[in-house]
Structures are given as structure tokens and as C-alpha cells.
Amino acid sequence: MNQLEDQLAVICFQPDEDWQHVMILDEVICQKCKTKQCLTFCPSSVFHESIEAKQPIMVLYKQCVECGGCRLICDNIDFSYPRGGYGVTFLEG
């Protein structure tokens, strides 16, 4: 986890405070979900399980790198790109 924090720390983000672009549609489905693939799949660890049981999965959308993959692995994830100009900015290619 520490390693990813270092990786995320060097990325340039323009977070959108007013609009969340990755969301979970139905928390009840998550409670019944056995695989919870979102937790390992996301390359920037946007999805987190709460320490307390039965709490909804946390979505740290401001650290999303916009690969767009999560929407393809789970129909319960609603993903669209951030609003124009917001989100990740890659500078190094």
C-alpha cells in the first residue's frame, strides 16, 4: 500500500470537488458480492473496504487515473470521465 501511495504522490491531479465521476450504484449488491474484484483491479486503489463490517465501499475518486477499466469488470460501477479539464494529467508520456 505504501508503494502505491508513493506512486500516486507523483501524479498531477486536478480534482473536481463538485462532481464525482466514479460511483457505486447499489451498496446492497456489494454486500452480497463474493469476489469484490474492484478492490484489487483498480490500478490506483480507488475502491476501499471500510474497516467496520457492513459499511459501504469507499470510492476515492480523486485519485482515479481514468483507465476506464472498472466499468468493464462490474456493472455496479458507474464510471464516466471527469468533467472537462479535471482529473489526472499525464506529463511524461
Partner: peptide, 24 residues
């Protein structure tokens, strides 16, 4: 690159999601 190196790795989204391997 001129003064940096780009290193990447990838496989299908379905392999990542079913294997549980974290990309990073």
C-alpha cells in the same frame, strides 16, 4: 527516453480482475 525510462506491463482486464493480481 532522453533522460528517463518508461517501463510498463499489461494483460487483459479479465485476467487482472479474475486473478486478483494488483496491477501496480
Amino acid at each position: 527516453f532522453q533522460d528517463s525510462i518508461n517501463i510498463n506491463v499489461g494483460m487483459t482486464i479479465s485476467d487482472f480482475s479474475t486473478s486478483g493480481i494488483r496491477p501496480y
